[in-house]
Write a protein that binds this DNA or RNA. Structure first.
Lengths: 152, 152
DNA sequence: CCAGGACATGAGAATGGTTCTCATCATCAT
DNA sequence: ATGATGATGAGAACCATTCTCATGTCCTGG
């Protein structure tokens, strides 16, 4: 992996009628290095050569091509990461206090059991072609030490 | 349950320095009847006596009181449901094509195993006080029958 | 009863993340 | 080269959400 990440991206972009331009390659590299879902400001920070509108447009293009995924956080804005077939299947630790998102992988056997069970439930409800999304909500170490009140 | 839903709400609202007004009661009843996360337009639909700004404000108040939870969907807007300690712990079937969200409960033992494992992983990563969120992504029956292209 | 204080409401303005528009550039095939 | 097709950047437009402010409502103490 790693080397052909860009090949795969190029192919998929081609299929969806797009080009693998320098800026799109740049975005893919940024997301690859980050290893965690990034918000637009994170991507823009200290890179004054990226136009915000182009970043949005290109992330949308990469999403359409199936290379990038928009992660919905409960922060009022979105974060972006590479799709799982380009990395490893993983889940997120989400800090409910500062919004920081961190990747985790869960054990194979739990994954399998979750998948199996959910698949059954989904079918029963008339849903098809199912993936799952499993996130942990908590407080990261940094937020836990200073006490940020959440609820009385 | 059901009867004291309103008592609990009144108490929690009181604790967080608010009143259980007619409109807030109304919102709680709407969410209770729905049994699925509702978007603001769903709540407003055919109820011209509710001011949009008040609905937002009141849902925020109810969320602060721990009665309501904002569910982040990948639709660009939020949905609201009663918190789990007022209903049952459950998860969502999310249709990736039409955005419809439906509640599901998963078997006790899977829940337990997920909780146990995630707790361990979280602790290892320095996260504390963890809840989980487990959603199914797929296509609902309605969207599956008519073919809505998602990706080539 | 009446007055005052504290919170709730409604309408619309303001905010902020995201998407669209449009004029200009780059890239590819002929 | 040359024209077509798509990409880029800057800013305007959009839309969900939040804020403002002028009332309204409810409870409390006199």
């Amino acid at each position: 992996m790693g080397a052909d990440l860009h090949e795969v991206t190029a192919v998929r972009l081609g299929e969806s009628g797009g080009r693998y331009t320098r800026q799109r390659r740049h975005l893919v590299e940024i997301l690859e290095r980050a290893g965690m879902p990034l918000a637009i400001p994170d991507i823009l920070r200290g890179r004054r050569n990226l136009a915000q509108s182009s970043v949005y447009r290109n992330l949308a293009a990469l999403e359409r091509a199936g290379v990038v995924r928009r992660v919905p956080a409960d922060e009022g804005f979105g974060r972006y990461e590479l799709t799982e077939d380009l990395t490893e299947h993983h889940h997120h630790l989400i800090c409910s206090s500062c919004g920081r998102v961190q990747d985790v992988e869960v054990p194979e056997d739990l994954e399998r059991e979750v998948d199996r069970t959910l698949d059954r439930l989904a079918r029963r409800a008339g849903f098809a072609s199912v993936a799952h999304r499993l996130d942990l909500i908590g407080r990261c170490g940094r937020c836990a030490t200073r006490g940020t009140a959440a609820r009385a």
